[in-house]
Computed example of a mutant assay.
Amino acid sequence: MTPIVQTNDAVTLVGGGHTSPEVIDIALYLAPILVAADSGADTALAAGHLPVAVIGDLDSISDKARAALPPSCLHLISEQDSTDFDKCLRNIKAPLILGVGFLGGRLDHELATLNVLVRRAGRPVILIGASEICFHCPPDLALTLPVGATVSLFPLSDLTAHSSGLRWPLDGIGFAPWGRSGTSNETSAPHVRISVSGAGMLVILSRDHLNEAIRALLPPTAD
């Protein structure tokens, strides 16, 4: 399937949930291609930004936003078996996606987004909220963070993990959404390493560490 948006640049994906112009600007500074998920077009336009594409079932975008955009910008995917966030991830090919407007709104929408984040685990996607970021943990994650920084882990599957550089080590702990989680851990050393046995672990960090999360998720560039 040919992607709707294909770019070598990082993409800012704007959803219709709670966000702010400040958060959108932070994302666009790092990911300059703007795509909207359905009513995320209204959010983007209200912040003064024109999306290159609007993807979704288009049942939430306002008539005002439709009128402000060229018809070629609107990409209707009418099936109702997936969320607009999932429709977007399936149709964007980019090295990184920064999602804004997907955290802090309706709880059911937020949970559905986290579900997709795990199901599309191979995609480098970071969700940016008002004060925190969230992303799916790759098999081996290396971070450089200030000592004492909060590192929260929440499992959406049954898995195990190992760590170094965390105040409370993860080794030997079984994680599951119906069992143990790893919230409110913190760094005991500047270099943190987390390895997981499979897909399903979410990492939650302060928004201050967005650049480090991007560095950790992207493959190293060739010299």
Rank of each mutant, 00 (worst) to 15 (best):
T19Y: 11
A65E: 10
V35L: 09
H18L: 15
S62I: 12
V52E: 13
F135Q: 07
G15F: 09
P177A: 01
S20Y: 12
S131Q: 13
I128C: 06
T19G: 06
A161K: 03
E79W: 05
A46V: 01
N115P: 01
S20K: 09
D86V: 13
M201T: 00
E22D: 15
E186T: 09
S131D: 15
D171L: 01
A142R: 12
V14F: 08
P70I: 02
H109C: 11
L205G: 04
V54N: 12
H209S: 01
P190K: 07
G16Y: 12
A47V: 02
V11C: 03
D208A: 14
L166D: 05
T12F: 00
P146Q: 03
V196W: 06
E186G: 00
F135C: 03
A213N: 01
V125L: 15
L50I: 11
D108H: 02
P177E: 05
G148P: 06
S20Q: 13
L103Y: 04
S72T: 14
R66Y: 02
G99L: 10
R180G: 02
M201S: 02
P71K: 07
K64S: 11
A47R: 05
A31H: 10
A112L: 11
G16T: 09
P32S: 11
G122N: 13
V116R: 11
L58T: 14
V196P: 05
A44G: 01
G48W: 01
E110G: 00
S152D: 02
R167D: 13
A189P: 01
R215P: 04
E186C: 11
T221A: 12
G198K: 03
I77T: 09
S72K: 14
N185I: 09
N185S: 12
V35T: 10
G179D: 03
I26S: 04
C88I: 05
G99R: 07
V23F: 05
G122R: 13
W178G: 02
L145T: 03
G198V: 00
I55R: 07
R215T: 13
V203N: 10
S188A: 15
D38C: 10
S206F: 00
D208K: 15
L69T: 12
L98N: 08
L107G: 00
A94T: 11
T12E: 07
P139D: 03
R215F: 07
L74R: 10
V23N: 06
A47L: 06
T83L: 10
G56H: 12
D63L: 13
S184R: 15
D140A: 15
I26V: 15
R207C: 01
C134R: 14
V116Y: 06
V118F: 02
L34T: 06
I194S: 05
V203E: 06
L153I: 07
L159D: 00
V147H: 00
